[in-house]
């Protein structure tokens, strides 16, 4: 099974220090690709090929990294789209959000829309690919999983539910090749209209008590949490009580 698999990677930033590093989610996408395609994984980056942090991906056991050379503030979508179209790719893996720049998370959606491919979001595991049909586990909030079925070619974004990326080794990272390619440069609109500034701490939400009287304010400050109008089943048999509970659990959809 060799499917031309591409992992799109970007340069990340450490959340505390802001130092350049491999992006957490993109590294997980590379990990998923390595498990799926092994050495046939094609890792692609659009940006500066001389960035040292890019070599951290090579340290995951890759021989080569392909770079479409672009300056900061250029639009990566058209060049990636053309590259993927020409290369006959069947599966594209990527993280869900960049750690530098705007990080809107729109790139996979725009690529999938322009390529006309289905896009699977927040994938935890690719279970199987048989006869061009893939079964994929999607991660949902609250630790839940959903199984999806889709035809090749398709695009996948991973987030923190995907398997953790392997460590990057220094030796392979320095030995690996970075294959840079010159492409057309298209400026991104945000670089002219948007303004990046250091993040301001968000104001803490205050608990505003709209009470007319002092007694109400006192009550709001001291009262215990109370549901108020709860239904109390008293003096009923255990079976009847259990039925009532089960009815609520089924209504809420937690018992399957």
């Amino acid at each position: 099974m060799t499917i031309a698999t591409v992992a799109l990677v970007s340069i990340g930033a450490h959340p505390a220090s802001g130092r350049a590093r491999r992006a957490e989610q993109d590294a997980r996408a590379v990990e998923l690709g390595l498990e799926l395609a092994g050495d046939n994984l094609h890792v692609l980056h659009a940006g500066n090929p001389h960035e040292p942090a890019l070599r951290a991906y090579l340290g995951m056991g890759l021989d080569e990294l392909h770079v479409l050379e672009q300056p900061d503030g250029a639009d990566a979508v058209p060049v990636l789209r053309d590259y993927i179209r020409e290369a006959g790719v069947q599966l594209v893996l990527t993280g869900s959000q960049a750690e530098t720049g705007e990080g809107s998370g729109m790139l996979p959606y725009l690529l999938a829309e322009q390529l006309g491919w289905p896009l699977l979001v927040g994938v935890a595991q690719i279970e199987s690919i048989h006869n061009g049909v893939a079964q994929v586990l999607q991660a949902l909030p609250r630790g839940q999983r959903r199984r999806l079925q889709v035809r090749l070619p398709f695009m996948v974004t991973v987030d923190n539910a995907a398997p953790k990326a392997r460590q990057s080794a220094y030796g392979p990272a320095t030995r690996g090749l970075v294959d840079a390619r010159v492409v057309e440069i298209i400026a991104d609109e945000l670089s002219t209209t948007g303004l990046l500034q250091p993040a301001r701490p968000r104001p803490k939400r205050l608990k505003v008590i709209k009470a007319k009287s002092g007694a109400d304010r006192m009550k709001a400050a001291t009262a215990k949490a109370a549901g108020g109008s709860g239904q109390v089943l008293k003096g009923v048999g255990a079976e009847e009580g259990a039925q009532a509970i089960l009815k609520l659990l089924i209504e809420e959809g937690v018992v399957r």
Binding site: G230, L233, E239, A242, A244, V255
Partner: peptide, 23 residues
């Protein structure tokens, strides 16, 4: 009970047994 939306007053063991059977 004051906090709960649904409360059943009774022996927990009996209710849990009945709940397992009902499920």
């Amino acid at each position: 009970i004051k906090r709960a939306d649904l409360s059943v007053i009774g022996d927990s063991a009996a209710v849990l047994e009945a709940l397992i059977v009902a499920v």
